[in-house]
Design a protein around this nucleic acid. Structure first.
Length: 860
RNA sequence: GCCCGGGUGGCGGAAUUGGUAGACGCACGGGACUCAAAAUCCCGCGCUGGCAACAGCGUGCCGGUUCGAUUCCGGCCCCGGGCACCA
């Protein structure tokens, strides 16, 4: 008889049970090894999206699996509650950001609870609450006193119409998203954290993170970007002083034909003083967003300053250009340009008719005769994504002796490893390393340069000119300067009952907020009205969960739980959030709060949930609301489907089809258990039971215990939840084919069903709890633990060999495991599927035997 | 532009250390049950040829290494993520 699968009732009962029994409340008082499982906390945007479901299900599976394996598990949850969307929603809905945020938290908390997460809700935090941000304000003041936070000017996107600073996201095609005005770059004073002081440690400690994906470590290494190069000074012609550049390719110095500076560079400003055209050009460069992607993809433009500098080695006079492709924030904000050996320089030189001078040739060309001016441009056609034909210009060098040409593609990639100096005077014939050393040493002698290690990493600007964020705890006093707010006067509370009018931050206009007295002299003073970057809050929350109610930033409990054993979150956080969190961990260590060097031992970076080929996001309007899924099919179906659809690290292209399949499987499972228990209670077959099993039941038990082993490996080591599920599905398909109702069959069936409930319970905990209760009326699945593998059930004495001829599959044979290689080779040669390929004039050249797998007969 | 990933049937994906390509599921087709539909159950399902046995082709494209390549190497194409103020 067909049974209903009453998922609503099952899920409500299970969730109520967990809540009443405080099943997932974590305690530091435990004999078991601790396991801190953390999923990146959500921004309370309003409703759960599929990315959340995926993220929190992965974390929950790992938490529940470790719980079953006997760990003392802590899985907390909270809210990354400050941020830009609250301000936009507040303006749109005529409400206060705080009210909007708190309502969203309430709603999303209900939704998360419906997912049945094994979360300790007692530890819930919201970063917008004073009891949370008080402690980061305290840390700010400590770091300020230590000089790790300082003030300097930096560039922001300025909307001249709205008169506000814009986030990069708010600049669309160089214009403000509300006003449509052309955005300008503007320099304003801001607070910075000296993350560069930790660059070396942040780089080196990546080597300790064996539990992190290689991909993420590579991205962080490249982001920190340690390079070994040289600073080179070009004396300015006709005035004192010199122009300093940084280069990672000192070996190409003899090929430098001009020098380029960023529009923001002091020399550009100086040259523009009596040059209207240059002033205009610099102004033009300062239009558009500050985002590096925009700067780097902009059309290369430049203008000569009229200034000349002297090449430090050959004495040539080189022109100084202002170029929009030079980044003001990297190195010296100025570069030596070697058009022959740098693609961007080449493009620029071509456009403005500047000299191109090769200084490196391929190693195997060193005897060739090449004139310096033999470099020429070759235009090639290539297909753009829009399918229109485009032209690409690449430099080509011709070897007169052989008429051989070489294109830029070779030069750019391989030059440093396989090139030798050419046309470079005394450095001719030297390779990258010796040329760099010689040149650095000669520059040093002339006092015009030296070797230098450079990081790409910049200090972290943390000031935001926005309202909905943590107030920066600084008081500005005319007498005492910048005064950090003393600990006993913290927190500086952000007023929550405000009106957002869309023009500027309410606290910047609120004397009740900014008027204060100086903590040092007691005189009239004003508060800082900028707030902190929201990455500040998310950089230390992992420590707060561990000591969520401590009367300090974190207490000894943090040292019990930290480091986080498993961190789970989106790959889009691979650099910024994860780097800042690692940085904060080290800061907190250095102020004596915690002991560990790194916050996250193991990291699982979940792929994005995509819809129609791009990231699901509110701004793109392609989100799928999981609520309908939960309402119509239940949380277990939503969890099962999400875990089954793709491996966690891959991006998941969302499609609704398949949800039915997941639900159908749960219904079949429910039915199978119902049919079984209908026949009365029975004890599971035990490993040491004396009955002789039929061949069919032996095979079933073999599959069961192989499945237990595989699923444990898939959960614990591989994080391959989709294959774990598919192997349990195979198990259930096999069970369905076994029909007997005799006692032994029923014992084995009980064994299979009990174990299936255990294996699936991390993924679909509600139904498994109910199934267990049906199978074992007086016990709870929560006490059962992870099942043991019966090794004896997995012993096999025959094995199937695949038979190949010349690497192509031609057949197979099942043989006893004890056969010798000689016998196997004889058998395979006599097999008809091999025989027919051994025709006249052909001989068996060799036989390759892969034990227990495959035999390949090579015939020729 | 720079850095990091990915590309396998109609679709999501599997193949864990170079050794059976397409597990499992979806969709689809056929059948059973039903007055009928839904649900459920059974069978089929990479492409081409063939009644079939079987044969050939096939993991984005081009080339290489190997007895054997989705897997390793070289070159390309396309798609996604990040680029410091979205979180």
């Amino acid at each position: 008889m067909q049974q209903q699968y009453p998922f609503k009732e099952i899920e409500q009962n299970a969730q109520a049970f967990w809540e009443q029994n405080q099943t997932f409340a974590a305690s530091e008082k435990s004999e078991k090894p601790k396991y801190y499982c953390l999923s990146m906390f959500p921004y309370p945007s309003g409703r759960l999206h599929m990315g959340h479901v995926r993220n929190y299900t992965i974390g929950d599976v790992l938490s529940r699996f470790h719980h079953m394996k006997g760990f003392n598990v802590m899985q907390p949850m909270g809210w990354d509650a400050f941020g830009l969307p609250a301000e936009n929603a507040a303006i749109k809905n005529n409400t206060a950001p705080a009210k909007w945020t708190y309502e969203n938290i309430e709603h999303m908390k209900t939704q998360l609870k419906q997912l049945g997460l094994a979360v300790d809700w007692n530890r819930e935090i919201a970063t917008c609450k004073p009891e949370y941000y008080k402690w980061e304000q305290w840390l700010f003041t400590e770091l300020f006193k230590k000089g790790l936070i300082y003030k300097k000017t930096s560039t922001v996107n300025w909307d001249p119409v709205d008169g506000t600073v814009l986030a990069n996201e708010q600049v669309i095609d160089g214009r403000g998203w509300r006003s449509g005005a052309l955005v300008e770059k503007r320099d304003i004073p801001q607070y910075f954290m000296k993350i560069t002081a930790y660059a070396e440690e942040l780089l080196n400690d990546l080597d300790k993170l064996d539990g992190w994906p290689e991909q993420v470590k590579t991205m962080q290494r490249n982001w920190i970007g340690k390079s070994f190069g040289c600073e080179v000074e070009f004396p300015i012609v006709g005035q004192s002083g010199s122009l300093k550049v940084y280069t990672t390719r000192p070996d190409t110095l003899m090929g430098a034909t001009y020098v380029a500076v960023a529009a923001e560079h002091a020399l550009a400003t100086q040259a523009a003083q009596n040059n209207a055209a240059l002033t205009d050009f610099i102004a033009e460069c300062k239009r558009g967003s500050v985002a590096e992607a925009d700067v780097a993809t902009a059309e290369k433009k430049g203008m000569a300053t009229g200034l000349l500098v002297t090449h430090p080695l050959n004495g040539e006079q080189l022109p100084v250009w202002v170029a929009n492709y030079v980044l003001a924030s990297y190195g010296e904000g100025a570069v030596m340009a070697v058009p022959a050996h740098d693609e961007r320089d080449f493009e620029f030189a071509n456009k403005y008719g500047l000299k191109i001078k090769p200084a490196i040739i391929p190693e195997n060309w060193k005897e060739a005769k090449i004139e310096p001016d033999l470099i020429s441009a070759r235009s090639s056609e290539y297909k753009d994504k829009t399918k229109e034909i485009n032209h690409k210009i690449s430099p080509v060098l011709t070897n007169k002796d052989t008429n051989q040409t070489i294109s830029w593609d070779f030069w750019s990639e391989k030059l440093a490893q396989h090139g030798l100096c050419y046309n470079s005077g005394k450095y001719n014939g030297l390779d990258f390393e010796s040329a760099s050393n010689e040149i650095a040493s000669d520059l040093s002698t002339k006092n015009l340069g030296k070797k230098r290690t450079q990081y790409r990493l910049r200090d972290w600007g943390i000031s935001r000119q926005r309202y909905w964020g943590c107030p920066i705890p600084i008081v500005h006093c005319a007498n005492c300067g910048e005064v950090p707010v003393p600990a006993d006067q913290l927190p500086v509370i952000l007023p929550e009952n405000v009106v957002m009018d869309g023009v500027g931050s309410p606290i910047k206009k609120d004397p009740n907020f900014y008027e204060t007295t100086c903590p040092t002299c007691g005189g009239k003073a004003t508060r800082e009205t900028d707030t902190l970057d929201t990455f500040f809050e998310s950089s230390w929350y992992f420590a707060r969960y561990a000591s969520f109610d401590a009367d300090k930033m974190c207490d000894e409990r943090a040292n019990y739980w930290l480091p986080v054993d498993q961190y789970v979150g989106g790959i889009e956080h691979a650099i910024l959030h994860l780097l800042y969190a690692r940085f904060f961990n080290k800061l907190m260590r250095d102020v004596g709060l915690i002991k560990n060097d790194e916050p996250f031992t193991n990291l699982l970076t979940q792929g994005m949930v995509l819809k129609d080929g791009s990231k699901m996001s509110k701004s793109k309007g392609n989100t799928v609301d999981p609520q309908a899924l939960i309402d119509n099919y239940g949380a277990d179906t939503a969890r099962l489907f999400t875990m089954f659809a793709a491996p966690p690290e891959q991006s998941l292209e969302w499609a609704d089809s398949g949800v039915q399949g997941a639900h159908r499987f749960l219904r079949r499972l429910w039915q199978a258990v119902y049919d079984h228990v209908q026949l009365g209670e029975i004890a599971a077959y035990q490993a040491n039971d004396p009955q002789t099993l039929s061949a069919e039941l032996k095979v079933l038990r073999l599959q069961l215990h192989s499945t237990i082993e595989k699923v444990a490996d898939d959960y614990g080591r591989r994080h391959s939840f989709n294959t774990a599920i598919s192997s349990v599905m195979e198990m259930m398909n096999a069970l369905a084919k076994v029909e007997g109702t005799d006692e032994t069959t029923r014992q084995v069936r009980q064994e299979v069903l009990q174990n299936v409930a255990l294996l699936l319970s991390p993924i679909v905990p509600h139904i498994c709890q109910a199934l267990w209760a049906a199978l074992q009326p007086n016990s709870s699945i929560l006490d059962a633990g992870w099942p043991a593998v019966d090794e004896a059930a997995m012993v096999q004495n025959s094995v199937e060999y695949m038979i190949q001829v010349n690497g192509k599959l031609r057949g197979s044979m099942t043989v006893s495991k004890s056969e010798t290689n000689e016998t196997l080779e004889k058998m395979v040669l006599n097999d008809p599927c091999v025989q027919k390929f051994i025709v006249e004039n052909s001989t068996v050249r060799k036989i390759i035997l892969v034990p227990n797998k495959l035999i390949n007969v090579v015939v020729g």
